[in-house]
Amino acid sequence: MRRQAVDRYVDRLLGRRRPKSFAATEDELAMVRTAIDLAAAGPDAHGPSPAFVDRLRDQLREHEQTQEATPEPRPAWRTPPRRRFLAAGALTATGALVGAAADQLLQSRDQSPQAQPPDAPGELVPVTGTWQPVAQTSEVPEGAVVAFDLGAVTGFVRRTGGRLRAVSGNCTHQGCRLNLDTTRDKLACPCHGATFSLAGVNLTRPHQSGTPLPALPRVPVREQGGTVQIYAPAGDHSPPAA
């Protein structure tokens, strides 16, 4: 009997139907897990169907309209009216040009044409970049933290648990440049005293009060050819000086 239950579960999985629950033993749970791992490399894994994408978008729009009347508490991480890191200029001044590129970008990121935003083509801000070296691999051993400055992007890269992580070096309060604390285990803002963990989580707030600040944005980082590289806006190496 038991054997049939897990069998049926897998059959439905393979038949692209919703599997039914059953009281599974440890062994059976392991089989389900393996079946899922295998199915994850199967034909349905590549992406949602365009029909689903459309249907869910419509549902969400409806949902949004019915919700609109209710005021909601502002979640801590919601973007505050602060200095826009990087993107603000492009957003206001050159919407149309940038918008055209945005369409291209979205299309290249998702093959289904339905996934493009159908309206508001002039607003999305595509900021594209290149991988730029910021340090030698040997300069970022396990546990190390290294500051980098690429002009448009500044931040801190560290290696933890064998993996590289990088965060933006601009305070999410009003954009001041963060410093690595003397203990090298947190980032401190010289302007109003906010601090952040090396992973970017806000530890103390400006002036010791108010709501927590949003986390520092993560910055894409990789390692190649003996160098640590940051993904940053292409072709901008100009110093931030006026």
């Binding site: 900021v127 970049g129 933006s168």
Partner: peptide, 12 residues
């Protein structure tokens, strides 16, 4: 395949 940087904003 160019990508949007993660600290750009979503307009809507």
């Amino acid at each position: 395949r160019p990508s949007v940087l993660p600290w750009a904003v979503y307009p809507d």
